[in-house]
Design a protein around this nucleic acid. Structure first.
Lengths: 335, 335
DNA sequence: CTGAAAGCGCTAACAA
DNA sequence: TTGTTAGCGCTTTCAG
């Protein structure tokens, strides 16, 4: 594999000159430049990025830390990142997190080892110690779908979204509204909790008393959501509408309804949260939180931090949109 | 940011000793090791991987070249890659290809610039020149869902799969079987063509004459598939079953049937190809080509090539599985 | 406009 | 068991 030295020798110039040509330094005479370019071509030379990185201190690489692509929402966010990155000179290294140990190890090492010029963290909230480490690092960090006061982030207003979803059901005349989600207690990822807050607020504002029987939470995933939905739907006085903490769980609710012979939307309205593409297949009404856009915004914020090195963290909230499709309907008293 | 020299100074040893500790070289006395470890801790030192990479020539990074994650099948393959990589010491750099220019630029540079130790190419077949370049490079390359005689690859037997799908429909009593896919002529990605071949073979083996009117191809995507399916379904003598070149197109066929009031599976059987998760929502019968597994196998083959440097390319074909769900049914003469 | 030389932070002989 | 030193391939002063 030819090096810059081989090129220099072949073109009868010093290595500094080759380097100048490589970096489009204008202070190289036309003739010299051509000679160097010819040598580069003849040798099929490609500069070694690693050597360049060590020398310049820049890697032209951004690190993306995100969970395994188990959830469609992660994928959609990553798509946005991919899209935004294509227009830049940066490459992306993917650090996929399968569990807490892996997460903590990336959180510990990545901000300190100059492997990447910037870090994007998706759907993984750091604790105080970790956030401090990121904040004090040379490389800037941006959180997408996670929050910490010390770090810049792209956020969704989950409380507002939860309210929006619930209000939609209330506006349709529903009063017995169930809320189904993953566990609320986990500090790991508090979205579900905030959406729950929005649900409670909407009920309160409309003078609808909260019925604990209509609230259920458990493990994530479609199958578990189905089980939970069955519990709600087999109550003596079941809800006429269910707000699921995310689209996957909403699809689980649809599964349950199907299995119990409950007609959606005639006998049960269902609304989700996310706006993943899978929702389209099931015609799911949902709150679109612009997942794709979140990836794009995350990259933009990170790149601008790379250039400006802002002292204080920035925060951007994405807009939310009610996407009315086929799983919600005006409440009618049971035939 | 502390360097190996700072650690050496603090521990009162030479930098080579620090390096030895870092690399678990056994020839370091217990005392010295502890002193070094203490210094590392006190300074919160992390070795600079770039420097190490330049020195060793290994990057511990694999490059994954793949199209933008527009198709669910790419995502599913990437999931497999992600999963397999987690058990190794390798990281992954994602090179997302948005178009031919980008693809060619990655194909040209990546095998020559030591940025990665190995290359995995997903669903992007190289031409002869490019394949030659990969084959003669230092870094090994493995193709997933693409083929070239000069390179190792993980493959699906698309002809067999096409046959399998068509036979399923024939076994159900169908004789008027449509085939719908993306353009067959493109040398870019020949899967659709091979599946078509399988379709033709199955018809032939069962003595069913091929009717050109039942064959349609066009641009990719759900919406286009829907349009094409409408053409098939509005023929004077429409097919009673349609084999779509992939699941997304099959879903487009379902869209068309829905819109035309054609009942699936009563009046029309539909089978897809891929086994993407979206198919589950639509209860689609399909040929599962084990996409996730293809990513895993690709990584395994690449890693073994990294260790063994085999002279001749290897080739592995993944198994196929007929997944009978709800969109195919025994043919009954029209009521 | 060009070349020599000093790093970037690490590894790996080679000596001691 | 340890330290010294010469690279890895590039960029970037600093002279000329």
């Amino acid at each position: 594999m030819p090096t810059i030295r081989d090129v220099a020798k072949r073109a009868n110039v010093g290595i500094a000159t080759v380097s100048r040509v490589l970096n489009n330094n204008p202070s190289v005479s036309e003739d010299t430049r051509n000679a160097v370019l010819a040598a580069i071509n003849e040798l099929d030379y490609t500069p070694n990025p690693i050597a360049r990185q060590l020398s310049t201190g820049r890697t032209l690489t951004l690190g993306v830390i995100l969970p395994y692509l188990t959830m469609p929402s992660y994928v959609e966010r990553l798509r946005g990142v991919q899209h935004a990155l294509a227009e830049t000179e940066y490459n992306m290294v993917l650090f996929s997190v399968g569990g807490p140990t892996e997460r903590d190890s990336y959180f510990k090492d990545l901000p300190r080892n100059n492997l990447v010029d910037g870090i994007l963290i998706i759907s993984l909230p750091p604790n105080d110690t970790q956030a401090e480490r990121f904040a004090s690092a040379e490389v800037p960090t941006v959180l997408v779908d996670a929050h910490h006061s010390r770090l810049s982030c792209i956020l969704t207003d989950d409380v507002k979204g939860g309210k929006l979803a619930t209000q939609h059901l209330i506006n349709l005349g529903h009063r017995k509204i169930g809320f189904l989600s993953e566990f609320l207690e986990t500090p790991f990822h508090p979205s579900a909790y905030y959406r729950y807050q929005g649900y409670r607020k909407a009920l309160e504002e409309h003078g609808i008393p909260f019925d604990p029987a209509y609230h259920i939470s458990g493990e994530r995933g479609r199958t578990n959501a189905k089980k939970m939905a069955k519990q709600l739907l087999t109550l003596d006085d079941p809800p006429t509408a269910i707000f699921a903490g995310n689209d996957i769980q909403a699809i689980g609710v649809l599964d349950a309804a199907m299995e119990l012979g409950v007609n959606v939307p005639d006998d049960l309205s269902v609304i989700g949260f996310d706006g993943i593409r899978d929702g389209e297949y099931t015609n799911l009404t949902t709150i679109d939180q612009h997942l794709y856009q979140s990836g794009i915004e995350g990259v933009h914020m990170l790149i601008s931090a790379l250039e400006a090195h802002p002292k204080t963290p920035r925060e951007k909230r994405l807009s939310l949109e009610l996407l009315v499709r086929g799983t919600t309907q005006r409440f009618r008293t049971q035939k």
